[in-house]
Amino acid sequence: MSIENFPTEAKSDAVSKLQERIKSLEAEIEAIEYKLFPFEQSLRNAISDLLIEERELTILYKEQKKAKKERRLAQKRKGKNYKEVTDVVYISKETVTQEKVNQKEKKRLYKEAMLYVHPDKFSMQENEQLKATETTTKLIEIYQNGSLEELEAFHAHIFGGNTTICFDKDISLIEQTTNSTTYLTKEVERLEKVLNELLGSHTYKVLTTYKNPMSFVEELKAYYDDRIFKLRKRTRTKK
């Protein structure tokens, strides 16, 4: 049974639980980052010269490879039997049509949500205007970079009354909402992924398992010394 078929009270309880889970995840992520990020910065500071040299050599290596490829291509072009090769990507009419439909629907959802939650509607309510600004910022980000499904979810989230902004709700628009918990569910999934990546990062394991975490600097130096040595050989760069 879909959560959207639950009674209003049950849906409200589900939303509250999701919001509580989001707060809990955000707090846990913040606590880990508070310890981890300064440690990682200390590691970077300790090997800053190696990091810079490795990056410079990596860029040089890529530039040399690109130049070598261009020289080979120039030589081939001088040959009698050379034919210019062009990459032709076939895009079906159905794909183009569907993309246009998706863009049109994204534009409709975006405009509808933006007009509904625009900060100017709350010019006399400072707190509500701040919330509306945060919501519209997220809305713009999803419209520009997200998929139609993500925009649909956030649109449903807004019109489902889950933004904590005190709107004069348009019942006809709310009735169009198909899944008011989709955005919150996706946000929980996103935060869980961020948390798992932090917990699974090598530097976090070093920080939490090494007796002296800063001793990891020696391992990093050995790694970058070896990488720099190989890059110097590839680019024929002397120290």
Rank of each mutant, 00 (worst) to 15 (best):
Y224E: 07
R71G: 00
G160K: 03
N102I: 07
R21V: 01
G161E: 13
S24M: 03
L50P: 00
R232W: 13
R232M: 15
A31L: 05
A27P: 01
V117Q: 04
Y61S: 12
V188R: 03
E141N: 11
E197P: 00
V89D: 12
T58Y: 08
Y143C: 04
F216H: 15
E128V: 05
K17T: 11
I142R: 13
K211I: 03
L73C: 01
F39C: 07
E175N: 08
D168Y: 11
K111N: 14
S123N: 08
D120R: 12
T86K: 15
S201C: 08
A10C: 01
M214I: 15
K169A: 08
D170K: 10
E105V: 11
A10L: 08
D120F: 02
T137E: 13
E150K: 15
E26I: 09
Y223C: 00
T163V: 13
Q41N: 13
T235I: 03
I29Q: 05
V88Q: 06
S12K: 12
T135H: 02
K121P: 01
G79V: 02
T136N: 04
T185C: 00
N127C: 00
A67F: 08
D225T: 10
E20A: 10
L57D: 04
S42N: 13
K233R: 13
H202R: 10
Q144G: 02
V15T: 12
S48A: 14
P119I: 02
E218R: 10
E99P: 02
H157E: 08
E53N: 09
A46P: 02
M124A: 11
T235C: 07
S2M: 05
A132C: 06
F154Q: 06
K205S: 14
T185P: 00
E94R: 11
G161S: 07
T58Q: 09
T58H: 04
D225W: 14
S2F: 09
N212Y: 14
R21Y: 04
I47K: 06
D226W: 10
S16Q: 11
H202V: 11
I171E: 15
Q129S: 12
F122T: 05
Q176R: 13
T136K: 11
Q41A: 02
E105Q: 15
L60C: 02
S2V: 05
S172Y: 11
K107V: 04
N81A: 14
Q98S: 09
K23N: 05
Q176M: 07
V96Y: 05
Q129L: 09
K35P: 01
D225Q: 14
L57Q: 07
T181Y: 01
V89G: 00
F37H: 09
I91S: 02
A27S: 09
K111S: 11
N45S: 10
N162C: 06
V117E: 09
T182D: 10
K211S: 13
H155Y: 15
E94Q: 14
I174M: 12
C166R: 15
K131Y: 07
M124H: 14
L51F: 03
Q64T: 01
V117A: 15
L207K: 06
E126I: 12
K186G: 03
M124Y: 10
I52L: 11
K138N: 13
R234D: 03
T208E: 09
S48Y: 10
R190M: 06
R72H: 14
K230W: 15
H202A: 08
A132T: 05
Y90E: 12
L109Y: 10
T181M: 03
D120C: 00
L231F: 08
T135N: 01
V194M: 06
L195Y: 11
M1D: 10
M124C: 00
N196C: 06
P213M: 08
D226E: 15
